[in-house]
């Protein structure tokens, strides 16, 4: 009995850390909850861009093979030209989404 109790547990892996330690995140907006909302907003924008890229993969596969499969999607590589076009589309999306940041460049600061 005592022996089984002293048997070490099999080595477990801890989950990866997802929040950084260190100085508090600087405060950007009037309250920290708004900062957190903005961090979620930026993450959501990345998710949205990624959906657009996945649609582009679907379109590329449909154009070239006429059908879709999970396997074909997983092994699809966009290639340099297609990746370049995706990159331009992402930059264009960010310029649209963040348009309001330009406000202070117009009129009086």
């Amino acid at each position: 009995m005592a022996e089984t109790l002293t048997n070490p547990e099999p080595a477990k892996r801890l989950p990866r850390k997802r929040i950084a330690k260190g100085p508090a995140r600087p405060q950007y907006f009037e309250n920290r909850d708004l900062d957190r909302m903005m961090i979620m907003f930026v993450a959501l924008m990345a998710e949205m861009m990624a959906i657009r890229d996945r649609l582009d993969t679907d379109e590329a596969l449909l154009e070239s093979t006429g059908k879709l499969s999970a396997e074909a999607i997983e092994s699809f590589q966009p290639g340099e030209e297609r990746e370049q076009a995706r990159e331009e589309a992402r930059l264009a999306m960010m310029r649209r989404v963040f348009r309001v940041l330009r406000e202070e460049f117009e009129g009086d600061a």
Partner: peptide, 24 residues
């Protein structure tokens, strides 16, 4: 005091946090 500095800075910070979480 400008919205631009504060917003562009938090976009940079949020991107950095997202980078590690995405790769991780």
């Amino acid at each position: 005091d400008t919205y631009y500095y504060r917003a562009s800075s938090i976009i940079g910070r949020a991107t950095q946090e997202l980078l590690w979480d995405t790769v991780g």
